[in-house]
């Protein structure tokens, strides 16, 4: 469903991403790994429309999306999280989830002001959807807390829930396990697998936690210094000499 072809991104003299290709099928978890500064986040930023790539193509469900504005790409069903959690900190947890559903609710202002039955119905649905996902990520008790006051692990989960209420087709997670303790990482592992199994989303995952990556990925792409280094199943990557060299070289 997603095809990235020869994507390049240049910042002045720095070629941060160089001819990276990637494809993701329906209900698949594809990981992008690589040492720090390899250009993983930059690939995401190009895919989500945050940067306009300097070269290459991005096809989402057959449609070229490179260079489209970020909010339009997100409306197509490609939603992302951020390496540094970005919540609406002064809004409550539920409000964070309601904001994300603005499009399901978006009718004209008058319908909302007058509380037409149709509007109420949609509002109730979006509340239910929010409640469902809060339950799903175990944040129901925090519903009316301000998002900024949550513990780090909870914020990470809320960010994923906030993506899921938009009912995406493809979810891009940028280091979702960073800063989580082992128990939380285990929950995250199950959550991501269930997103694929139960909610039919494809996931593109950037992650440094190798056991998580090896455990849940269907395929893995390795990038080093902006260039694609290897790609294949976890088993193939584990045995790939180039990858071992790159990681050992870094260490």
């Amino acid at each position: 469903m997603l095809e990235v072809q020869n994507l390049s991104m240049r910042f002045g003299g720095l070629l941060a991403v160089d001819q990276v290709s990637l494809d993701v099928n329906e209900r698949e978890i594809v990981s992008i790994i690589g040492p720090n500064g390899a250009g993983k986040t930059t690939v995401f930023n190009c895919m989500s429309g945050f940067y306009k790539p300097t070269g290459g193509k991005i096809l989402f469900q057959g449609q070229e999306v490179q260079g489209k504005p970020d909010y339009k790409i997100s409306r197509l069903g490609m939603v992302r999280t951020f390496q540094h959690v970005r919540l609406f900190n002064n809004m409550t947890v539920v409000e964070n989830l309601l904001v994300a559903q603005h499009r399901h609710l978006n009718t004209n202002l008058l319908a909302g002001l007058l509380k037409t039955p149709d509007y109420r119905e949609r509002e109730r649905k979006s509340l239910d959807r929010a409640a469902y996902w809060l339950n799903r990520v175990g944040l129901m008790d925090m519903a009316n807390r301000e998002a900024g006051n949550l513990a780090y692990g909870q914020q990470r989960r809320l960010e994923i829930a906030r993506c899921m209420v938009t009912e995406p087709k493809l979810l891009m997670l940028d280091e979702p396990a960073a800063g989580l303790n082992p128990a939380e990482t285990k929950d995250l592992n199950q959550l991501i697998v269930s997103l694929k199994e139960d909610y039919c989303v494809s996931v593109v995952l950037i992650e440094h936690d190798m056991s998580l990556v090896m455990d849940i990925s269907d395929r893995i792409n390795v990038i080093n210094q902006g260039r694609p280094l290897a790609s294949g199943t976890p088993e193939e990557i584990r045995q790939n000499d180039d990858v071992i060299k790159a990681y050992l070289g870094e260490a």
Binding site: V79, F82, R86, L105
Partner: peptide, 25 residues
């Protein structure tokens, strides 16, 4: 308005413009 999607999106944009846009706003 503050209890409607418009009002929430005003606040969301104030809180974090990048996140708001990444959610299709």
């Amino acid at each position: 308005f503050m209890r409607m999607p418009v009002g929430r999106s005003w606040e969301a944009l104030r809180e974090d413009e990048i996140a708001a846009r990444s959610l299709g706003m």
